[in-house]
Design a protein around this nucleic acid. Sequence first.
DNA 1: GGCAAGATCCTCT
DNA 2: GAGGATCTTGCCA
Length: 183
Amino acid sequence: MSRALETALTGPVEEVAPNLLGLRLRTELAEGQTEVVITEVEAYAGGRDPASHAFTGQTPRNASMFGPRGTLYVYRSYGIHWCMNIVTGDRGDPSAVLLRGGRPVTGADVMARRRGRSDHLADGPGKLTQALGVGGDANGTSVFEGPVTLLDTAGVSGQIIATPRVGISKAVAWPWRFVLVDG
DNA sequence: GGCAAGATCCTCT
DNA sequence: GAGGATCTTGCCA
């Protein structure tokens, strides 16, 4: 694993979240290798964030958010989609970054097969997990060990903008959504 | 044991 | 632009 990557995940989640933009996320499964550049994230600050799933404390569902830094928290959204977070807090601190979107760089054909279409492969939380083949079995695994692996930046340049978060009903005004735009 | 809400996506009009 | 699909979790009785 890369010490630099672990350092990039260390600190207040709202400062760590933009660090993830431009990094690569890779899965290597039977269907083939797929890799995206992370272009959209949201910060969720666990116990001090009313919009976080961990705000009311630890439950069986969100237990992986209380794991060590780099743990994946994967949950089912609206009974249909999977959404993926990377834990950034120390063990016991459920701060995490929701991965909302990415740009395919490797294995776009594999993603298209998984998605059943060739456009909009990973431009949303549910689409990203589907394109990468990530599901509930990845919950609790570490991005430093796989099967979902966080990799260093591909040298992507761009501008980072902060906006309010999407799809939540609490603390909606906090500008904790970060987007990488071409620069 | 029942109920309400949810960090979404796709199709159709 | 609007609405339906679909199901798990957590809370309350």
